[in-house]
């Protein structure tokens, strides 16, 4: 029997992250990077410590961040791995290990920060 490829797993994560980024990415960058910090169209205290603590202690907020951060990382990891190959880095196993390793570490860190007792 042929060895099963792990590609569908990584491609699904890439696709989910790409879709999420395509649908809401521009709004997220505008809100967290421009509107909230500089008080453009949003109150200057939108991302205050109290507000963000309340957001991350809420289950909707936890699930939202648990989807956004890891999926963006998996999406980017897949593309960067392919890009390195396109630029002539042919150590496929090492490239995948590093790219997917960073995404995996980011996923674990996000989960820990949101789900650890007391968080």
């Amino acid at each position: 029997m042929m060895k099963r490829s792990n590609e569908p797993i990584f491609w699904s994560l890439f696709g989910a992250g790409g879709m999420l980024a395509a649908l809401i990415g521009p709004a997220l960058v505008f809100i967290t990077g421009i509107a909230a910090p500089f008080g453009v169209l949003l109150p200057a205290d939108t991302m205050s410590h109290a507000h963000m603590l309340a957001f991350t202690q809420n289950w909707i907020g936890k699930l939202f961040l648990l989807a956004v951060i890891p999926l963006l990382l998996w999406h980017a990891a897949h593309r960067v791995a392919i890009m390195l190959h396109d630029f002539g880095v042919h150590a496929v196993a090492a490239v995948k290990l590093i790219c997917y390793g960073v995404a995996f570490a980011g996923t674990v860190a996000t989960a820990w920060l949101l789900l650890a007792p007391g968080s």
Partner: peptide
């Protein structure tokens, strides 16, 4: 494909904010 670099960087900015949030108000500010 190169858009992925900014996607990764943005996700890391958010993750770092989440980490600073866990360290208390001064760190987060």
């Amino acid at each position: 494909e190169a858009t992925a670099i900014f996607v990764a960087a943005y996700a890391i900015v958010l993750l770092f904010g989440l980490y600073r949030l866990s360290q208390g108000p001064a760190a987060y500010d």
